[in-house]
Design a protein around this nucleic acid. Sequence first.
DNA 1: CCGCATCCGAATAGATACTG
DNA 2: CAGTATCTATTCGGATGCGG
Lengths: 197, 197
Amino acid sequence: MTLKTYSQNCGLASALDVVGERWSLLIVRTLLVGPARFNEIQAQLPGIGTNLLAARLKYLARWGLVEKQTGRQGSYRLTEKGYSLRPILHQLARWGREFVPATGIENHPWWSMFNIESAFRPERADGLDAVIEFEMAESEFHLVIRKNTCRVAAGPALSADVIVKSDSPSIFVGGGSRLQITGDSAMFDRVRPCFDL
Amino acid sequence: MTLKTYSQNCGLASALDVVGERWSLLIVRTLLVGPARFNEIQAQLPGIGTNLLAARLKYLARWGLVEKQTGRQGSYRLTEKGYSLRPILHQLARWGREFVPATGIENHPWWSMFNIESAFRPERADGLDAVIEFEMAESEFHLVIRKNTCRVAAGPALSADVIVKSDSPSIFVGGGSRLQITGDSAMFDRVRPCFDL
DNA sequence: CCGCATCCGAATAGATACTG
DNA sequence: CAGTATCTATTCGGATGCGG
């Protein structure tokens, strides 16, 4: 676990000592939507080994980014410090969008939701209040826009202004992902340009 | 390199495929102050092997973050895309500052300047115009604050409002780094709170 | 020297099998 | 289900060599 630290008197180097190793930031991304169990995290990270995931979680916990929920439902959740990476990961995600290859990659519903959240530009929201539900083949999320912030949550919304429905298990999968938009279409037209997509 | 890509349809994962490997972001940090030659970069990255540095530079060039200057003075410089990482690295540096260990780490002048630049909070500058010169034992930098932005440059300033002088080769070295402030002290008092330090 | 390619021991990652 | 143990493949770090 980074017994190889950079040992530089620099916030960036120390940040990388904590979250710079392979998988670490993707684990944080996975937990941004809420606590998850070991296997749920692993399912979001195709290719990670159980040993590495265990080591990373332990390491992130050691630095106070992640907490292990005790008792039944034993799961991992981000601490405040962990959640404070959210805006940074959003920026990185926007920065990296042009590098996403067009083919040969996997799609997961949560990834697309995270990228939608990343694409939100608060300066365009102008106080807008809206709830958008996303219904994909096997999962549901909803987006809450309020006070110039945008947050994704798992599951259906209590009451949605707009519903976006996709046949595929994820959004953004090329090809057959035709989207159906239902609900308040004026609201959709206001919400749409708040996202850099 | 990174033949092991995450292969996820996600901007964050792709960003990490490009700059997520060891040393990559520190190379970008090094070049933020301006073009540098191979050995100059290496000098800023204690512990990196020449082979790795060469490989990373080639990889970053392949993705269009770095350009190799041809001809005499052959050096490496960031492209626009490379420079666009600056605000992200600033955020990461501020995030990681609390993880910087108190002892057992190296100090380089440029690292401390980068961290000062990272600590600048534009919303507090309120249109302030100022130039601050930093004179350390073996190097000089200057900070230009204008239009609510802050930028570090190498070398002395043409005309500085404030001069910060340090006996040690770097600022922020614990212990013997006593700072001498000379120049417009009213200006210094206005500038100081613009930095989260 | 400077920029890099090569080689080698050590550390990390990936895959799979195994255990409470 | 939640990991640990083990083995193999890859990458890293450091030293060395070599052409410009």
